[in-house]
């Protein structure tokens, strides 16, 4: 983990209210894993003191660039969205545990909703020795992201939208139910809104399932204990730190009872 100065190379709209930022530094740390995140300082804003956490969804070690995708939410993401290329940005990375390694040849099913599909794309790109299937959903066609990339990297790619304007109509879990037996994954990796993740219970009961969570954060490195989420392990409940113990957890550790 290291705090580095990056320069914005590109900062463009990627879908409705969703931006993609390409950042370049002198030398990227070599140990960035799929599912890890970066803590980004909002430049030129002394009032916004907390860094914003975003998944690192693409890494290029050849030209030392990373890509972040962010949805416009509040002041921080608004301020980031108007930054021109050339702006210097302070970024702490890589943070969190990322998705676990999977044995060669095993089938990995990626289940993503909305902006949550992005960290899964980094799995599809980096888990080269696994068979990837994906099921990705969006509210509507205007919010679709990286569908072609998922199709290219997956053996099977199911696309869904809440209103049917893209792919099959329905929520991700509903649509996936029709295909899950046929895919028969060895492991499921999921990222998306909490309500979507919670809806994966019936699949998690059958297949080992890992979910990537969000929580409001401070330091991002496990020191301040503000980013907690309740977890259950061996029948004991504890507050885990999403930034350091997560953001990726076993489904049944965080969604129980």
């Amino acid at each position: 983990m290291i705090d580095l100065t990056f320069e914005i190379i590109k900062n463009e709209i990627m879908a409705s209210d969703i931006f993609e930022m390409t950042l370049k530094t002198d030398k990227l740390p070599a140990d960035i894993k799929a599912g890890q995140f970066a803590n980004v300082k909002v430049p030129n804003r002394t009032d916004l003191i907390l860094r914003r956490p975003f998944g690192i969804y693409s890494v290029n070690f050849d030209d030392n660039t990373i890509k972040l995708g962010y949805a416009l939410r509040g002041q921080g993401t608004q301020a980031l969205s108007i930054l021109p290329a050339g702006t210097k940005v302070q970024v702490l990375l890589p943070l969190g545990n990322g998705f676990p390694a999977v044995e060669e040849g095993k089938k990995v099913l990626l289940v993503g909703g909305g902006i949550g599909v992005l960290p899964l794309l980094s799995v599809a790109q980096s888990f080269k020795n696994n068979v990837i299937s994906s099921c990705i959903g969006f509210k509507d066609a205007s919010l679709q992201m990286k569908v072609d990339e998922f199709k290219a990297l997956s053996k099977e790619c199911i696309v869904a939208s809440d209103d049917g304007s893209l792919g099959e109509k329905g929520y991700v879990a509903q649509v996936l139910a029709k295909y899950i037996d046929q895919i028969n994954p060895d492991v499921i990796f999921a990222c998306g809104p909490e309500i979507m993740l919670k809806g994966l219970g019936e699949f998690a009961a059958k297949y080992p399932t890992y979910v990537s969570l969000e929580q409001r954060m401070g330091c991002g490195i496990g020191a301040c204990l503000v980013c907690s989420c309740k977890t259950k392990k061996n029948d004991e409940e504890h507050y885990a730190r999403v930034c350091a113990d997560g953001p990726v957890f076993r489904f049944e550790e965080v969604f129980y009872g």
Binding site: D47, R216, G218, C224, L225, V226, S228, K230, E237, Y239
Partner: peptide, 17 residues
């Protein structure tokens, strides 16, 4: 164990935990 989350809020040039 500490308090239930959310445990942090950003305020102008400050934070509350």
């Amino acid at each position: 164990e500490g308090n239930a989350p959310v445990r942090i809020a950003e305020t102008p040039s400050g934070m509350i935990n």
